[in-house]
Every structure is written in structure tokens, then in C-alpha cells.
Write a protein that binds this DNA or RNA. Structure first.
Lengths: 371, 371
DNA sequence: AACATGTTCTGAACCGTTACGGTTCCTAGT
DNA sequence: ACTAGGAACCGTAACGGTTCAGAACATGTT
């Protein structure tokens, strides 16, 4: 049975009903409610459908009537190539896909270019809900999503009234990490962070820029870090923070180079992602610096490569993020969203994982014998 | 401007038109063809829309009318967790997503569980086309896709009449790899392959099972390998082929263990994927075998980790696979598909990459001094 | 015989939009 | 004054289904 050559005009449920001399209802029932008609008639309907090349009820028409698209949209305003290379983003996607698969619901990657101001793709996506991940808080696509009358869950974004949210407690996690380094004795630190805003800035980020960052996660991690170190007397305005727009090992390495060239005195580099940290590790090796003896380096996320490298980092359950978001969206008991009263805020647990890249700084004495 | 609380009943284009005292056409034009009405009226329409909480034309209704869903479906009958971990599959997904993003079209991951016989999700997906990747050729989901009256592109699947196809020339690539090893002098070989069928079989795969494999890529690679080695006098029925259902480093290692335990004489292990090869490499190291001095190991795919490990492998442009498939589907000049006459078969180039894991086998003399 | 019960099928309303082919009105040209 | 031509707007007919309240008929109950 080869696929039928496209006929002049596709058969429809109505034409099939006419051919059979039954009502459209009956044909519809043959597909959707087999118990509503006799098995004989049902067989006749299905046989005739095959004969006429009728492929079954049109999904879009069905969606219109039932008001269910059977898919949820995922908005990532990032180069997709980024999303597919970043293990953390991938974990979120995987978790979401898994949750949706369990419910028999599709996941649609909604095209949304970073720079693109045209949000038509968001308006045109036939989905029952949205998950928004990793977009700057001033992104027009995010706004377009919120305008849509469908439930939305945001991941790693600032809390928005009436919008469900899933995120780890970044602030608490970063504080824990900061105190780990503080207790080891580090006071001369440097920071590597991901893009802070939609405009590109590869280099040092002023304190103002840090505080006004449009990427919520980065902003939180940086400001929390600042608070922790200021609490022990470090003047944050003297702490070098190097920003990178692209999120790759190489950029991590180059950021570390830039940081160390200008600030050779730092005893620890805190990175807001594992990727940056692994890049920094490469740069340290290139310079002949021993980690952690000469330099401590920490990451954030807890990706597999970090574990392999025994990086000191904060683990966060990325897969769980996606899965929770999906479950929230798909939970049938939670209809009537957009209502600030039953808004859900899910906070995921994180875990400080102390690896072999953090240790006490060399003491002043030891320093004298340095290179 | 917070998101409007859901009112009794969503405003529609019609109710908005009534409120404004204009026709539905005009409201529609306000959104879709701004040049068809005066700027003043358009503004009035949009303002009133905001006032009434009308979120703009419903995407599903629009899709029904225009017969465009604005998304294409991706069918991967695999555990999604697999697809998101396998770099080759990820490359395909990335390429596809990129091509679709360029066209402003979404990519929908259609939920299709491996064992699941219920293909309703395929029937219910509101998409303008399908890409099918990495499914066994007897998978019911594939059949369901072919039944749908939308264009379809299959990747790495056997040629099907009237269905566009994108794939590398696996046979040629494997032949080249085989002759590389043959020329090095290998005659005692073993093979590690991925799942051959939907039923699980972790262990040796009989020749019959190899030839009847439902995964086209695996079947092709194995039969081609057999032909090449038989051409130089190797009796394929004596060649151990170890199959693994799961595709992970650990399974690759365990497969290598199983192979070497039973066949210590092999001088080369040919793996049908890089992941398996990298796992085999781990096992070789565990056994204290030097690669390539004691044992040659080859992979297939050319993933990043293989390059890092300097594995001898066949590189195939996975991203290109996805991108070509997307372009084929989205090409507006190619309407009227399903017609066997203008069927497209795209064959991608592969490249043998000789790394540091293949070398001539130890000679018999050398063997005497072995452990 | 009257009535309840069940099974099987139907009629009509409805989902929210856009395509198509107009009509109306205003302005400029002759 | 007449008309051609364009701009602005509109009415109708799909698009392809699902759903719900019954109708029609057979069967069992009292």
C-alpha cells in the first residue's frame, strides 16, 4: 500500500460522510469514540477512508474546535546553536521534553532570534502554553508570550506577577560558594561572567553594568557575590569582573587571560558557569599556574564535564528545571492561570560540590618564593 | 500594563469588529495587511483590542484557514534522553532547528515512545511537514507519518518511493574505513554495533540478525563491512559482532569487554559509532592494552569527543543533515511532493579521518613476546 | 400495553479566522 | 460634468472538524 498520490482535492470528513451516507458525527466518532457506533459501521468507515485516501481528522481543525493544540512552546532567545551546545540549556530542554512526552504533548521550539524585534513567530505559534528560558528580562519575545492567553512558566527569570516560575535559589547557592572561598581565605578574587545584556560587551563590566544586567541569573549571581565579599570587608568596586558575550570554553579562557593579565594578584577566579570555569582552567594550565595551589577556580551549574574535571562548583538540577516547568504547564488541576492568587513558585535545591580546584590561597610567605 | 485577568470569555476578532462597528475583514487586515486600511483606523482597532484584551488573531484558527501551521514535526523514535545525549542526533536537531529558524518556522518534537504502538500523537501534530530521523524501518510511527498528507523528509533511512531523503553514503564511507584497516593488515577483527532491532539484544549478533536489522544505518554499515572483509578472504561468519541496545560510553566499554573476553585474538575493533569506540577505548585502557600498538579501534560519526581523542573515524556532517532536511521541507519551489517524479535524494560527503587509534597489527613474531 | 433503558446515529451549532471578489468613495484628469 | 483609478472597507463563504441534545429503533420489565 504505497502512499496515495495526492488527488485533486483531499478528502475531508464531510466528503467521507457523504460517500458513506452517514453523518459527519458518525465519521468523527469512528475515529474518536469507537464505542459510539457499531463495530461494523466503524469498519466500513475506516475502510472507505482508506479507499478515498482520507488521512483522518485534520489536526488543526481539531485543535480549533477542541481548543487544544497538543503542544507547548519553548522560547529561548538565544542562538539555537548556543542552546544545543550548552549542557545546562540542553538539560532543561531534555527535562521539558521528557515531561511532555509522558503527557503525549509535543514541544515546539519557537523561532526567536536574539536581535529580532519581530515577535510574529510568538503570536503565530499554535501551542497550549509556553516555557520561557534564559531570555533577557527586557526581551520583546517574552512580552509577546505574556500577552498570549495561555499559561506560561518561566525558568530562571525574575518573578513576574501571575506567572509560574521555576528556578534554583541562585542567591543562596552563590552565597554558599562565596563563603567556601572566603573561609579558605580568599580576598583577592576575580570574576568571569556570561553576557549581562543584549548589547555585546567583551571585557570588564562596571558595577553599574552588573547591577543593571538584563539577564536575571547573571545579575543575581553577581550581586550576591558582591554582598558576600563586602560582608567580609572586600571592596567590590576593586573586584575585576570580566564579561563574555559568547559562552564557550575559548571565551572562558580568553576572559581568564584578560583578567589575569590585568590582575595577577588574584588568588581565585569565580565563574558564573562551568563552561567559563573550564575555559579558565585551560588558561591557567597554559600559564603554568597550578590549580588549586596557585589559583582557585570555581564554576556554576554542575555539568558532566565539570564533574569529570573535579571542578568546585554549584550543582543545580537542570533536568528537573525543565521537567517541573513541563509538569506545571500540563497539570490539569491547575487551570485558570494568569491568576496571581494561585501562582506557583518552585525553588529547586542546589548543592555545593567541592572539587579539586579550590584550596587556600598561597600565604604571603609562600608568595615570596613564587616565580 | 499587567497581563489582563482572563475575562468571562475571550474577545475574538468578530467581537472586536462588532465593538468597533467595522467588518471582521478590517480587523484581520489591521493585523495582517496594515496597508489595506488607514493608519487611523488601524490604530483605533489596535487600541480597542488592547482595551478588550484581545490578544490578536488566534494562531490555530489562522492555521486552519491558511493551511499553514508554521511548524514542522520531528520524529525520533528513541528515548528523548538518548537523542539529547547523542552528539550525532543533537547535530541533526541543531541543523534542522537552524534551517527552520531562518524561515521563521518552529520545530515540534513529536512525542513517540519507542515501544508505543499508539500513533495518535503523529496524527494530532499540527505541522506542515515531517522530518524522520533514526527510527527503525518497521516503526509504526514512521508509517503514520507517511500517511499524513504533508511533505516528509527522512534522514538516514532506506529510500522510500516518493519521499525525500538525506543521508551520507554510509556504504562508501564504511568501505573506505574497512580498506584502511585491511591495508594496515588487519584480518582478525571484531565489531561493536548499536541496536539492530526494536527488541533488545545485548550480546553477539548473528549474521542473520545483522542482515535483518531494522535500523538501516546499522544494517548498511555491517553488511558493507562484511563485503569488504570477505573480499579479502575473511570469513564473516567468524567475525564477532557485539550489539548493544543502549548507546553510551559504558555500554561501549562493556561490549568491548565481552568481545575481547571471547576473542582475545582480535587486532582491531570496528565500532559503528564514536560513542561505542570511545567506550571501547576505555576498556582497552582498563585492560592495559595499548592503542593502537596492541589493538586498533575505529569509530564512526566524527563527533567532537572523537576528535579530541584522536580516534580514527569517519566524519559525517551531522549538522548538514538536519539543515538539508529542513531546507528541503521548506523550499517553496518544491510544492507538490509525494510525487515520485521529483523526489530528492541528497547524499552528503563523508571523510575518513585517520587518528591515532589505528595502526598495523602486531606481527606474529611480535606476538610471541606478548604477555 | 405502557414504560424505562440502551444503543446507534443525526442535525445543527460552533470554533475563530482569512480568501475572495466585490462596493463605496474620493480625487485627479479631461 | 464625467470617468478612470486607486484607497478603504465589507459580505460571504469557506477552512475541517467536535459536540451536545435528541431522534429512531430495538430490547427488556412490569
Amino acid at each position: 500500500m504505497g502512499r496515495p498520490i495526492r488527488t485533486r482535492r483531499q478528502a475531508t470528513l464531510a466528503s467521507l460522510a457523504a460517500e458513506l451516507g452517514v453523518s459527519r458525527t458518525t465519521v468523527s466518532n469512528a475515529y474518536n469514540r469507537p464505542d459510539q457506533l457499531s463495530p461494523e459501521l466503524r469498519k466500513r468507515v475506516l475502510d472507505t477512508a482508506r479507499k478515498l485516501g482520507y488521512p483522518g481528522p485534520d489536526p488543526v481543525a481539531r485543535s480549533l474546535r477542541t481548543r487544544k493544540a497538543g503542544a507547548i512552546g519553548l522560547l529561548l532567545t538565544e542562538n539555537l546553536s548556543y542552546a544545543f551546545r550548552d549542557p545546562a540549556a540542553l538539560g532543561v530542554l531534555e527535562g521539558l521534553a521528557l515531561a511532555c512526552e509522558d503527557a503525549g504533548v509535543g514541544v515546539q521550539l519557537v523561532p526567536a532570534r536574539p536581535g529580532e524585534e519581530d515577535v510574529a513567530t510568538v503570536h503565530r505559534a499554535g501551542v497550549d502554553g509556553f516555557v520561557v528560558y534564559s531570555v533577557p528580562d527586557d526581551d520583546p519575545h517574552l512580552n509577546a508570550v505574556l500577552q498570549r492567553p495561555v499559561p506560561t512558566v518561566i525558568i530562571d527569570q525574575p518573578v513576574l506577577s501571575g506567572v509560574d516560575r521555576v528556578a534554583p535559589d541562585d542567591a543562596a547557592a552563590m552565597t554558599t560558594l562565596a563563603y567556601h572561598l572566603i573561609e579558605l581565605g580568599h580576598r583577592e578574587i576575580g570574576v568571569l561572567c556570561m553576557r549581562l545584556s543584549r548589547d555585546r560587551n567583551d571585557g570588564f563590566a562596571s558595577r553599574d553594568r552588573q547591577e543593571k544586567a538584563h539577564y536575571h541569573v547573571q545579575r543575581t549571581r553577581l550581586t550576591t557575590l558582591a554582598e558576600s565579599f563586602e560582608a567580609v570587608g572586600v571592596d567590590w568596586s576593586t573586584v575585576p569582573v570580566v564579561e563574555r558575550f559568547e559562552h564557550t570554553l575559548d571565551e572562558g579562557a580568553s576572559a581568564a587571560r584578560q583578567l589575569l593579565d590585568a590582575n595577577p594578584q588574584v588568588t581565585a577566579i569565580i565563574c558564573t558557569s562551568d563552561i567559563l570555569a573550564l575555559g579558565a582552567l585551560n588558561e591557567a594550565q597554559r600559564r603554568g599556574l597550578r590549580v588549586p595551589a596557585d589559583l582557585s577556580i570555581t564554576g556554576f551549574d554542575g555539568i558532566a564535564d565539570a564533574e569529570r574535571a573535579e571542578l568546585t562548583t554549584v550543582y543545580q538540577p537542570v533536568r528537573e528545571k525543565g521537567r517541573s516547568a513541563g509538569n506545571l504547564l500540563l497539570d490539569p488541576t491547575r487551570r485558570g492561570q494568569g491568576n496571581p492568587l494561585n501562582q506557583q513558585i518552585i525553588t529547586l535545591e542546589t548543592e555545593l560540590r567541592i572539587g579539586k580546584t579550590s584550596a587556600p590561597p598561597r600565604t604571603a610567605e609562600q608568595h615570596w618564593f613564587g616565580p
